[in-house]
């Protein structure tokens, strides 16, 4: 069976500075992988490289998404192919309405996937239903995209986009940070609702707590631009108990 995502020996740099130093990772359809690791270890960099941000320059390695060469694709083509990145810091875009944008994005993706445009009424029904489940009020839907949203509202809004765009692979970059306990549960339920045998998730987090709600199949530990250890959910608990310090120290020694 082909992997959903196959990263091999990925090297990438920002501003000429090497950040990813040989990352290899394989996600099968239906799997949830988690990446943990200290601040600045390169987790968001990996997420941005996957989504195609041009500030991140790939210097070596390959990424296959299904049977496609991900690195040859533009960011929007990746979205069309079913990749979704929920950003650690969602961007505020004044002048672009949240709902309006959501419909544009959904129709762009549907069009690329050979589906018909969604009608305004059908779109509104879906968007409102998802929003309600995620505890996003009507007022927030009408505001400009992410403008003046609280940290938690931004994260919920990312999950709303994910739910409507129905990606094959969702990369969640610290979607749990900044969420209160109730919001964390709501967001995790949003993710769990979407788990399916075809869909994969790459969940970047600092906290074991999220992984109690979204139970991963595989946990990776990234340190200094490399995956230093891979294991099951118990690895997350071990990290929670012992911290990275010992980890990094042991590896460095």
């Amino acid at each position: 069976m082909t992997a959903l995502l196959e990263i091999e020996n990925l090297h990438a740099r920002v501003d000429g500075k090497p950040i990813l130093k040989g990352v290899s990772l394989s996600i099968a359809p239906g799997e949830v992988h988690a990446i943990m690791g200290p601040n600045g270890s390169g987790k968001s960099t990996l997420a941005f490289v996957l989504a195609g941000h041009e500030a991140y320059e790939v210097t070596d390695g390959s990424i296959r998404f299904g049977d496609e060469d991900l690195l040859a694709m533009e960011p929007e083509e990746r979205a069309h192919a079913g990749l979704f990145l929920a950003m650690q810091y969602p961007v505020e875009i004044p002048g672009v309405g949240n709902l309006y944008f959501l419909r544009q994005a959904l129709n762009a993706v549907r069009k690329a996937r050979g589906l018909e445009e969604i009608s305004a009424a059908e779109f509104l029904r879906k968007a409102r239903e998802e929003a309600r489940r995620l505890g996003i009020g009507e007022e927030l839907l009408k505001r400009d995209l992410n403008v003046g949203f609280s940290g938690g509202e931004k994260k919920r809004n990312e999950i709303l986009q994910m739910a409507l765009l129905e990606p094959r692979l969702a990369v969640l970059d610290e979607t749990d940070s900044g969420l209160d306990i109730d919001a964390l549960r709501v967001v995790a339920e949003g993710v769990n609702r979407m788990r399916s045998p075809e869909r994969g998730f790459l969940v970047i987090t600092h906290y074991q707590r999220l992984l109690e709600y979204i139970v991963p199949d595989v946990v990776h530990v990234m340190v200094d631009g490399r995956i230093r250890r891979t294991g099951g959910p118990e690895l997350a608990r071990e990290l929670e108990a012992r911290g990275y310090e010992a980890f990094v120290g042991r590896l460095a020694a």
Partner: peptide, 16 residues
Amino acid sequence: ASALFYLRARGLDLET
């Protein structure tokens, strides 16, 4: 640039 990337990452092409 980050706004542009955000929109593209959601499927809107560069020109749009």
